[in-house]
């Protein structure tokens, strides 16, 4: 076995679909195991499998100097499943559909309002604190689910991949801290909690809500969908005045 052959094999491993796929599954598995093993509630909140997996995979890529693009060759198989999983959010919602009619008005008032506040505050705060205009524009659509945030940021002159990174950050933050903050605010209604988490932390927050309680998960999924719609409509409009 020559040194050349080892280098060649290592190059092959990095860009083979099995590598990115396996690394992601292992990272996720470590996250699930870790979350089950810790006892304290705040540790359980912090060890969200998505966060642990991001850290594990990110560390492996940095340490072994592997390109993110190479990793994506395999990981894109997992990204693909996000589509059917988003469609699947109709199922918990269908089980709660009897709640939906009575809450239609509060939902239709609160979600567009929150979307407008989130866009405006995100953009203006970055400007006031001396951040770059690219960051401000990429920040505006961050509460929308990742594909929407990318498309909107590029449409208004932000950076698509940066908008995706911000959307993921806010999603993970919501998964970790959202339920705890809502409890501190004494918001106990499961429907209100779910709607709030979906409105600020889209799919990643929804994943946490779904793991906590079926009603919270159902309303978070609904909220994520409606918020994506509200932000898509509001970002171009608000940009005219901001």
């Amino acid at each position: 076995m020559s040194a050349d052959r080892i280098v060649e094999t290592w190059d092959w491993v990095q860009s083979s679909p099995a590598f990115g796929l396996l690394l992601t599954l292992i990272g996720y598995r470590i996250g699930r195991e870790l979350q089950q093993r810790v006892a304290r509630p705040w540790l359980k909140a912090v060890t969200q499998p998505v966060l642990v997996a991001m850290v594990v995979v990110g560390a492996v890529l940095l340490v072994f100097d592997i390109d993110y693009a190479d990793y994506l060759v395999g990981a894109s198989l997992i990204v693909f499943l996000l589509g059917p999983a988003t469609v699947a959010l109709a199922v918990p919602l269908y089980r709660q559909v009897h709640h939906l009619r009575r809450l239609a008005v509060p939902i239709l008032v609160a979600l567009p309002l929150a979307a407008a506040v989130s866009i405006t505050l995100g953009l203006l705060l970055v400007r006031w604190l001396g951040g770059s205009e690219e960051l401000a524009l990429s920040m505006a659509p961050k509460a929308a689910t990742t594909p929407v945030a990318i498309a909107l940021a590029e449409q208004i002159g932000g950076i698509g991949p940066l908008a995706a990174a911000l959307a993921v950050t806010i999603g993970v933050f919501g998964a970790v801290a959202g339920p705890g903050v809502l409890t501190l605010l004494r918001i106990r209604d499961r429907r209100a909690r779910g709607l709030a988490i979906g409105a600020v932390s889209h799919g990643i927050g929804t994943a946490r809500a779904l793991a906590d309680h079926p009603v919270e998960g159902a309303f978070a999924g609904l909220s994520m969908g409606l918020t994506a719609l509200a932000i898509s409509v509001l970002v171009p409009l608000l940009l005219l005045v901001l």
């Binding site: 989130s118 505050l121 995100g122 604190l129 509460a143 429907r191």
Partner: peptide, 29 residues
């Protein structure tokens, strides 16, 4: 490089929108 504007803008807008939806839905519902 842009840690301060990034963190403050993200956290503040996240918190305000979260409290707004949670509070409004609880109140109106």
């Amino acid at each position: 490089e842009e840690a301060v504007p990034l963190l403050v803008a993200t956290l503040v807008s996240w918190f305000v929108a979260l409290a707004l939806v949670g509070g409004l839905v609880t109140l109106l519902g």
